[in-house]
């Protein structure tokens, strides 16, 4: 029987921040980072928490790894309560949080691993052996004995990933593990994450805002936005919720875009429209994503509208639904948007 290795029930987190209202006046503003999150992660799966910046991903991971206290609700990790048994939780997890900022730059990679290994009660030969195993597994042997300050960003991220493995924990928390990485190193980390599940039976809880990464890696995905879990399921299950809907991706030159989006939204059959800024062959552009029932009939209408408004179209691509569409369906926005609650 597969057990739930992470259980979160009605988790709430409110940040209270001071807002200046004149020279001496300040008031408290409440930001509801988590609004009653319920979540279960099964042993041996790669579970992805998918959401834009400010959705509550890091808050949730920080509560589950005992760095933050929830205001309400409870969470069990490896069967331990994150508030009452925090040390037992920490001993049973590996964490990659804050990426390259989690390292001592004036130490070598190996020294970093040895130091953190010591904090997990490893010592002597056992520590050296484990450090060598991790270096070998992640593939950082070539630069493990150089000072971290000489590493590239990608190398630092690989070392931060290696650090999360040092205590050989059954459960790994990886917060945006491939952020700011070049495609080659990002692919390497993804490959290792899969290997950790398949060969070593680890459970992996990762956060990402890259939908292709979630689709590629995760057995199950939870979509989180403004502190709420909106949907949970395998990527296939989530895409199936769109039932026959498809999407069209259109890149247009960055010009009079404010007029275009409402106009597209007004066309019959359009379910939702979202946009984000991108660069296409060095040109500043806007990527418009249109969720609809039948792209074949809709596409001519959209093109006609764009031509009428003299908008330069750079690229058009009708697509099968992706997790991006699922996210848009639930939130009305794209994943790339920042949803931090303004102060």
């Amino acid at each position: 029987m597969i057990n739930d290795i992470i259980v979160a029930e009605k988790l709430r987190k409110i940040y209270r921040i001071k807002v200046s209202k004149g020279l001496f006046r300040k008031s408290l503003k409440e930001i509801h980072a988590l609004k009653g999150v319920d979540l279960r992660v099964k042993e041996g799966e790669i579970f992805g928490l998918l959401g834009p910046n400010g959705a509550g991903k890091t808050t949730l991971i920080k509560i589950l790894t005992t760095l933050l206290l929830p205001d309400d609700g409870r969470a069990l990790v490896n069967g331990y309560d994150v508030v009452k048994e925090s040390r037992k939780v920490r001993a049973s997890i590996g964490v990659m949080l804050m990426g390259e900022r989690s390292l001592y730059w004036k130490l070598t990679g190996r020294e970093n691993l040895e130091y953190f290994g010591s904090l997990y009660s490893l010592s002597g030969e056992a520590l050296k052996k484990r450090v060598n195993e991790v270096i070998e597994f992640v593939g950082i042997k070539d630069f493990a004995d150089r000072l971290v300050e000489t590493y590239s960003s990608g190398q630092k991220m690989l070392l931060a990933f290696a650090k999360a493995l040092i205590n050989d924990a059954p459960l790994l928390f990886l917060d945006e593990p491939t952020v700011a990485m070049d495609p080659r190193n990002a692919a390497l980390i993804r490959e290792k994450i899969k290997l950790l599940r398949d060969e070593f039976g680890k459970t992996i809880f990762l956060t990402t805002h890259l939908m292709h990464e979630a689709e590629m890696l995760c057995d199950r995905v939870a979509i989180i936005d403004v502190g709420q879990i909106l949907a949970v399921g395998s990527p296939q299950e989530l895409k199936a919720t769109l039932r026959g809907k498809s999407s069209i991706e259109i890149d247009v030159k960055l010009d009079r875009i404010d007029e275009v989006i409402p106009a597209i939204r007004a066309i019959d059959d359009v379910i939702d429209v979202a946009s984000s800024y991108v660069k296409v062959n060095g040109i500043d552009a806007v990527r418009i994503r249109v969720l609809c029932n039948s792209p074949r009939t809709l596409l001519p209408d959209i093109i006609e509208l764009l031509v009428k408004k003299s908008i330069d179209v750079l690229y058009v691509n009708p697509q099968e639904p992706t997790l991006e569409d699922v996210f848009m369906y639930y939130t009305g926005r794209l994943l790339t948007e920042d949803t931090r609650q303004g102060v």
């Binding site: 790894t65 005992t66 760095l67 040390r87 037992k88 920490r90 001993a91 964490v95 949080l97 804050m98 900022r101 989690s102 390292l103 001592y104 730059w105 953190f116 904090l119 997990y120 009660s121 650090k163």
Partner: peptide, 18 residues
């Protein structure tokens, strides 16, 4: 500032020993 203080708090080591 380096970000390592949170990393220390993520380990099971007793903070007073650190």
């Amino acid at each position: 500032e380096m970000g390592t203080l949170e990393q220390l708090l993520l380990t099971p080591a007793n903070i007073y020993h650190i």
